[in-house]
Simulated scan of single mutants.
Amino acid sequence: MNTSYGFKQYVKEIFTGSKSLIIGMGITFKHMFRPIVTVQYPRQKPIMTPHFRGHIEAILFDDTKSHHCVACGLCARTCPSHVIKVQGEKTKAGDRKYGKQYFIDFTKCSLCGLCVDVCPEKTLKFSDEYELAFYSRWDGVMDIMQRLEERK
């Protein structure tokens, strides 16, 4: 009596396994003839979506050929990671202050975007650059204003 129950269970497992194998091979053959979606990086560069959030960078405005940062420090106070340091400068007494140096430590930045959202002059944005790699921890600390001057 015990052997017939074991034989029935054995045959049932064979049919269940065969069904599973046929379903799996059907999925494999279906995907085998679809076009390839893998990008052969670095020979091919991926196309980034408009919603890609790379590192933070300053915007170069056409009217002033510079940034509009007034070094208010609101971005530094809002940053939950406390990785932003802004230094401003006035050209003479009574003038508006403008951002001279804007340091961000990207090794600790969470790219939350609060600094971009809170900027009153809308001078910050997310970059489209995705190849930002560092060989040293100190290479991750960047001056955003200096990078803007290099892009001009």
Score class of each variant (00 low, 15 high):
2 N>A: 14
2 N>W: 09
3 T>N: 14
4 S>P: 10
6 G>W: 14
7 F>D: 13
7 F>Q: 15
8 K>A: 05
8 K>C: 10
8 K>I: 11
9 Q>W: 14
9 Q>I: 14
10 Y>R: 15
11 V>W: 10
11 V>N: 13
14 I>T: 12
14 I>Q: 07
14 I>F: 09
15 F>C: 09
16 T>C: 15
18 S>Q: 13
19 K>R: 08
20 S>N: 10
20 S>H: 10
21 L>I: 11
23 I>F: 12
23 I>P: 07
23 I>K: 12
23 I>Q: 11
24 G>C: 11
27 I>S: 14
27 I>F: 13
28 T>E: 05
30 K>T: 14
31 H>S: 13
31 H>Q: 15
32 M>T: 10
35 P>L: 07
36 I>L: 07
36 I>A: 10
37 V>E: 05
37 V>C: 09
39 V>Q: 04
41 Y>F: 05
41 Y>W: 06
42 P>A: 02
43 R>D: 12
45 K>Y: 05
45 K>N: 02
46 P>F: 04
48 M>K: 01
49 T>R: 06
52 F>W: 00
53 R>I: 09
57 E>S: 00
58 A>C: 09
63 D>A: 06
66 S>W: 02
66 S>R: 02
67 H>F: 03
68 H>V: 01
70 V>L: 07
70 V>W: 03
73 G>F: 02
73 G>I: 01
75 C>I: 01
78 T>H: 07
78 T>W: 08
79 C>L: 04
81 S>D: 01
81 S>H: 01
82 H>Q: 10
82 H>A: 13
82 H>V: 14
83 V>C: 06
83 V>M: 00
84 I>V: 11
85 K>S: 14
86 V>W: 01
86 V>G: 01
86 V>S: 02
86 V>E: 04
87 Q>N: 15
88 G>N: 09
88 G>A: 08
88 G>R: 09
89 E>D: 12
91 T>G: 08
93 A>T: 15
94 G>L: 03
94 G>F: 02
98 Y>V: 04
101 Q>D: 13
104 I>D: 00
106 F>M: 02
107 T>H: 15
107 T>V: 10
108 K>S: 09
110 S>A: 11
111 L>I: 03
111 L>S: 05
112 C>W: 00
113 G>H: 02
116 V>F: 00
120 P>A: 05
121 E>C: 07
122 K>S: 03
125 K>M: 00
125 K>F: 00
125 K>I: 00
127 S>G: 07
128 D>C: 02
129 E>T: 07
129 E>F: 06
130 Y>F: 09
131 E>Y: 06
131 E>W: 10
131 E>P: 04
133 A>N: 14
133 A>V: 15
135 Y>V: 12
136 S>L: 08
136 S>V: 06
138 W>T: 15
139 D>G: 09
139 D>V: 09
141 V>N: 05
142 M>F: 14
143 D>Y: 00
143 D>L: 08
143 D>K: 00
144 I>P: 07
145 M>E: 07
148 L>H: 08
148 L>E: 06
149 E>M: 04
149 E>S: 11
149 E>Y: 06
150 E>T: 01
150 E>V: 06
151 R>Q: 04
152 K>R: 08
